[in-house]
Simulated scan of single mutants.
Amino acid sequence: MAVNIYDTANQLEQDLRNTDEFKSLDAAFNAVKNDEEASSVFDEFRQVQQTIQQKQMMGQEVSEEEAKQAQEISGKIGENELISNLLEAEKQVGQMIDDINQVVLKPVRELYQ
C-alpha cells in the first residue's frame, strides 16, 4: 500500500493549527497587531532584524548605527508586554516545530549512522 506523505503533511499542518501553542501564538500576534504602539514597535523590530540578516547573509558588516538601532529596538521590545508575550509564544511554537523536525528526519539520520 502506497503512502501519500503529502496527505500526512497536510494533516500535520491542520493539527499544528489546533495546538495550544499555535493558538497562543495567534492570540499574541493579534494582540500586538491590534495595539497601535506594539504594532509599530514590532514592525520596526522586524525591519531592523531583516536588514541585519540580509547584510550578514551577503557577508557585509553591520554598521555601528544599525547595531545601535537594533539595541534600541530590543530595549523597546523588552518594555512591551504584548511583544514579549508574542516572542515567547513564537519560541514555544518554534520548539514544537524543532521537535517535529527531529521526528520527521529520524529515518534520514539513521540512514547515515
Rank of each mutant, 00 (worst) to 15 (best):
R109Q: 03
Q69N: 10
Q11A: 13
S39M: 09
T8S: 07
E44Q: 15
F42Y: 13
Q71S: 06
I52H: 07
Q69G: 07
A27T: 11
E64D: 09
D7A: 05
D99L: 05
L105F: 14
Q102W: 03
Q49T: 10
D98H: 13
D35Y: 06
M58W: 10
Q113I: 12
K76C: 02
Q92T: 14
F29H: 11
N85G: 02
A67Y: 03
E79V: 02
A2F: 05
V104W: 00
Q47S: 07
D43C: 02
T8G: 07
A28M: 10
V32C: 02
N18K: 12
N101P: 08
E37T: 12
N30T: 09
V62T: 11
T19K: 00
Q14F: 04
N4M: 06
N30W: 01
P107T: 08
N4H: 15
N101G: 11
Q53S: 12
D26Y: 08
R46A: 13
N80L: 03
Q69K: 14
Q14H: 05
M1A: 15
Q50D: 09
R17S: 01
E13T: 04
L111Y: 15
E81H: 07
P107G: 07
Q47L: 04
S63K: 12
I73G: 02
G75Q: 12
V41S: 12
M57C: 10
K106T: 13
Q54N: 14
K55V: 11
E90C: 02
V104T: 04
P107H: 06
D98M: 13
E88K: 15
R46M: 14
G94T: 12
V108D: 06
D43M: 06
S40F: 11
A2M: 14
P107E: 10
S63P: 02
A70W: 04
K76N: 10
M1Y: 12
D7H: 05
V48T: 13
E65Q: 13
K91V: 04
S84Y: 03
F42K: 04
Q92W: 01
I97A: 09
Q113H: 08
Q71F: 15
D15S: 07
Q60E: 13
E72M: 05
K91L: 13
M1H: 12
E64L: 10
E21H: 00
E37Y: 10
Y6L: 08
G75V: 08
